[in-house]
């Protein structure tokens, strides 16, 4: 397996977005691309990442291989890559180590690292194709701000979506608060748009702590999509630009 990405910053950002949620994970390499699926230790949330092969500058994978990686170790290695460096990842069939090569844009600096791999027994979950009742698209910076603002007031947030608005409500020890967003009527910048597609109104409760973990993915994408259906896990998606891939989180709802 060998793959090369022009910008190391993409992998660095992906890692930042998942390392607080997941300790070890298998990076599954196949001719289609690089993917990862992992649950947090309490099995409340799930991370699903896909980088399509065509999003790489070079991608070669003769046979599917899983690279078991400790994310704290990978973070240490990726700290040695400049944001604008290209990154080449290599692994052989034995799958006991992975090689990382970082090259500066001017090609005058080349650094190489080898990471020991681990055997990870991971349960893969089958996520059914779902027609969600409500889909909300909003700026990822707005999502991050709401989670961080409401997180200081309480542990859970009630998300209510109607045709007119999406409302985030918190009820905590010191009091309560809410933020309500209305779909944008004037579209100045596409990245500042709030869009709501609704089959039926939804009203659900989620842990703010996890929503805050997911907000670490905000640097990956200008917009985030929240998909909700009653009594079903929330899906939060950050897309890495057209055709490149995505990072999705799933969070089980709080149930009365």
């Amino acid at each position: 397996f060998e793959a090369r990405l022009t910008q190391a910053s993409l992998i660095k950002k992906i890692l930042e977005a998942i390392k607080d949620l997941v300790t070890d994970a298998n990076f599954d390499c196949s001719p289609e691309g690089l993917s990862l699926q992992a649950m947090d230790s309490s099995h409340v949330s799930l991370v699903s990442m896909v980088l399509h092969a065509q999003g790489f500058e070079m991608f070669r994978c003769q046979r599917a291989v899983s690279l078991g990686i400790n994310l704290a170790s990978l973070t240490k290695i990726l700290k040695c890559a400049g944001n604008d460096d290209s990154i080449t990842l290599r692994a052989d069939e034995k799958g006991d180590k992975a090689e990382f090569v970082f090259e500066s844009q001017s090609q005058d600096r080349l650094s190489e690292f080898e990471l020991k791999l681990m055997d990870i027994d991971s349960e893969h979950l089958g996520i059914p194709d779902t027609k969600y009742s409500a889909i909300v698209e909003m700026p990822s910076s707005e999502y991050r701000r709401i989670c961080s603002d409401l997180g200081v007031m309480g542990d859970t947030v009630r998300i209510s979506v109607s045709k007119e608005s999406v409302k985030f409500q918190v009820d905590g020890d010191i009091g309560k608060g809410s933020v309500c967003l209305h779909p944008s009527s004037v579209v100045d910048k596409p990245t500042e748009v709030v869009k709501i597609s609704l089959e039926e109104p939804v009203d659900m409760i989620f842990s703010i702590r996890y929503l805050n973990y997911f907000a670490k993915a905000a640097p990956l994408s200008d917009t985030v999509t929240l998909s909700l259906s009653k009594d079903f896990p929330l899906q939060i998606e950050f897309k890495f630009g057209e055709q490149m891939g995505y990072l999705r989180y799933y969070l089980a709802p709080k149930i009365d």
Binding site: M39, S42, H43, V44, S45, L46, E123, H124, L125, G126, I127, P128, T156, I205, S207, F232, P233, Y250, A252, P253, K254, I255, D256
Partner: peptide, 14 residues
């Protein structure tokens, strides 16, 4: 009071 659901209750294990 509400209880936290787990993902296996919603998704099948492959």
């Amino acid at each position: 009071a509400s209880s936290q659901g787990r993902l296996e209750n919603f998704f099948s294990i492959k």
